[in-house]
Amino acid sequence: MSLLLDLPLITDPWFYAVSIPAVLLLGLSKSGFGAGFGSLAVPMMALAVTVPQAAAILMPVLLVMDLLGLAAFRKDFDVPMLKFLIPCGLVGIVIGALLFRALPAHVVAGLVGVFTLLFLAQRLLFPPKPGSAPPPRWVGAILTATSGFTSFIAHAGGPPINAYMIPMRFSPVKFTATMAVFFFVINLSKWVPYGMLGLLDMRNMATSLALLPFAPLGVWAGVKVARRIQPGLFYRLVYAGMFLTGVKLVWDAVAHAG
């Protein structure tokens, strides 16, 4: 503990008051339970620090959570789907890295929020009929690349890819496992460009170390629930998480613009 206190970490109590719940919500999302809530982590932390700094602080936390998720669902993911998703997601990472300095993070957050709410409105007003076809692959490619892009900017990659994956009607465990592998690859690919952008400094990494003990708690709780929950309830909770995320992101974007 004394060694941790000697590091140049953030000491503002308000930062930890918003960041610890953010990390717990991120853990729930990484486990698959409450998918959509993970996109709230950066906006919550942005109440105390800038969006780029919040995103950088979460990088080691995400790595630990991704590894825990892989260990929990290592036998349940869909390989053919991942062969399609991962290249599309990496395209979005490249675009995000190129535009990171030019595009305000609150603009991206607002766009993600609007897209999320539009998707939920479509699902509620025009629900898919039994036996209806899933979205075409070209739609999936665009949504997955968007997921990579928004993941790079603000770790908010969940809503776009959920818009493609939810209509696939995977079981909760297969859905969760496939997303765990996808985001492990996507988050791992961010390390080099984040380093090149100067975001992985000692202060951010030391602060991340202080938050790490809370990472497995959220993942553990989410994994326990995900393996016991009924599919219908599971997806209703996914929709609830996406709704709250969309409202939060749009609200923040409008408030920033005003």
Rank of each mutant, 00 (worst) to 15 (best):
A97V: 00
A133D: 09
L209G: 01
G198N: 08
P167M: 06
P8F: 08
L3F: 02
A46C: 03
I95L: 05
G195N: 03
Q122I: 13
G222V: 14
S189V: 10
A56H: 03
A206M: 08
W191A: 11
L118I: 10
L3A: 03
A72E: 08
F183W: 08
L28G: 06
R228S: 03
P13H: 02
K83M: 15
P104K: 05
A253M: 10
L4P: 12
A48L: 02
L58I: 00
R169M: 13
H155C: 03
H256L: 09
V185S: 05
V94G: 07
G157H: 07
F243T: 01
L28D: 07
R228A: 06
V51M: 04
W191M: 14
P216D: 01
P159M: 09
V250N: 11
R101P: 12
L68V: 02
R203V: 15
S19G: 09
A206I: 12
G131T: 06
F33R: 00
L68M: 14
Y194R: 07
L209T: 13
A41L: 10
A215W: 01
W138L: 12
P172V: 08
T176L: 11
M59H: 14
F33L: 02
P172W: 05
A253L: 15
I20R: 02
A121S: 06
A71T: 06
S19A: 11
A154V: 09
L24V: 03
V139R: 13
V61R: 14
M1N: 10
A215R: 04
G148W: 04
P216F: 01
W191L: 12
A41I: 07
I86T: 15
I95H: 03
G157T: 01
G69M: 05
K75N: 13
V108W: 15
A257R: 08
G148F: 12
K174I: 03
M1P: 13
Y239G: 12
M65Y: 07
T50A: 14
T146S: 13
A133N: 12
V114H: 01
N162D: 08
P136W: 07
H256D: 04
T11C: 09
L70Y: 02
P216C: 10
L197G: 00
A72K: 04
G96V: 08
P193N: 06
V112R: 04
A145P: 05
L199M: 12
L211F: 14
F73Q: 05
L82Q: 01
